[in-house]
């Protein structure tokens, strides 16, 4: 019991530390490159196996190789929405600054992966179904997901005052989460052109290991990519939101950081003096 309570204390301390923008900035400084490296390694290995090693499908030939970018994109379009909605809910309930940052920074990444899922799906449907687009349950619900991401972003940028913008965005994100199970089960609830689940289904994946392994590598790699971009964007937003704070100013002091010699030039130009000795 003592061990459990000390683990719980450590976890909650870590959670609180990540909840402070300053601590987040420090910790993410180390985590960001790790996520980037994991993405690169996993997706390069995955791409190699997907394009060179995995055999052609006995029905669809080589066209099925679109699967290795389509399924990870579709998976992330849903995963990112769940992360965004959870972060938004945490922000609304506990008024945590970082939770709103995570939610709003996730939206454009989610929109990008949803667009990719739709576009790659369309490119796959054209030769195999004989149509680029069909108003069928899976495709339509995924399109609604894209509009939800756009709605969340538009709502955030529509408000001048940041607190109001964060709360408005968060409410839409939380309410919109109903789309996630609808998309997942759409192929079972309605008759659809789209095939059923092949990986997360009862009785295990219906796919040989030669195809499943690269798919898992790609899906994991893309997930780390989401984490990587989320950290980059969140760090930008923290800097921007906290620009008046002492720690950001200390971080970007001209003495400690001089990108392209900018500050001293500005100092000279704007003060109208000969030099600043």
């Amino acid at each position: 019991m003592n061990i459990l309570s000390s683990i719980w204390k450590a976890v909650s301390r870590g959670f609180h530390r990540l909840g402070s923008p300053r601590e987040f900035y420090t910790i993410s400084n180390y985590l960001t490159p790790v996520f980037g490296a994991l993405f690169l390694v996993l997706s390069l290995i995955g791409s190699y196996y997907a394009l060179f090693v995995a055999p052609a499908d006995y029905q669809q030939g080589d066209s099925y190789r679109i699967l290795f970018v389509h399924v990870p994109s579709a998976w992330l379009s849903l995963f990112i929405y769940v992360v965004m909605a959870s972060a938004a809910a945490i922000g609304l309930v506990w008024r945590m600054k970082m939770a709103f940052v995570v939610a709003i920074c996730s939206a454009p990444i989610g929109a990008a992966f949803t667009s990719l899922a739709l576009a790659t799906g369309s490119l796959w449907g054209a030769p195999i179904w004989g149509t680029w687009w069909e108003w069928d349950a899976r495709l339509t619900s995924e399109l609604i997901l894209l509009f939800l991401y756009f709605g969340v972003m538009a709502l955030y940028y529509a408000f001048e005052e940041r607190r109001t913008a964060e709360r408005a965005m968060a409410v839409l994100a939380v309410v919109g989460v109903v789309i996630v199970p609808i998309i997942h089960f759409s192929v079972e609830w309605w008759s659809s052109l789209h095939q059923g689940a092949t990986v997360f289904r009862e009785g295990g994946p219906a796919m040989p290991p030669s195809m499943l392994t690269p798919l898992i590598y790609m899906a994991l790699g893309f997930t780390f990519f989401y984490g990587y971009i989320l950290f980059l964007r969140a760090r930008n937003m923290v800097l921007s939101n906290e620009r008046k704070s002492k720690w950001v100013r200390a971080l970007l002091q001209p003495q400690t950081l001089q990108p392209q010699g900018l500050p001293s030039k500005i100092l000279q130009a704007e003060s109208g003096k000969e030099g600043t000795q």
């Binding site: 971009i229 980059l232 964007r233 760090r235 930008n236 800097l239 921007s240 620009r243 950001v248 100013r249 970007l252 002091q253 001209p254 950081l257 990108p259 900018l262 500050p263 500005i266 100092l267 704007e270």
Partner: peptide, 19 residues
């Protein structure tokens, strides 16, 4: 896009401090 906006935000803040 993430890298470019990072450079932009940093230079904005540095300009502000210099000003």
């Amino acid at each position: 896009q993430a890298k470019l906006s990072n450079a932009k935000i940093k230079s904005e803040i540095i300009r502000q401090i210099a000003r």
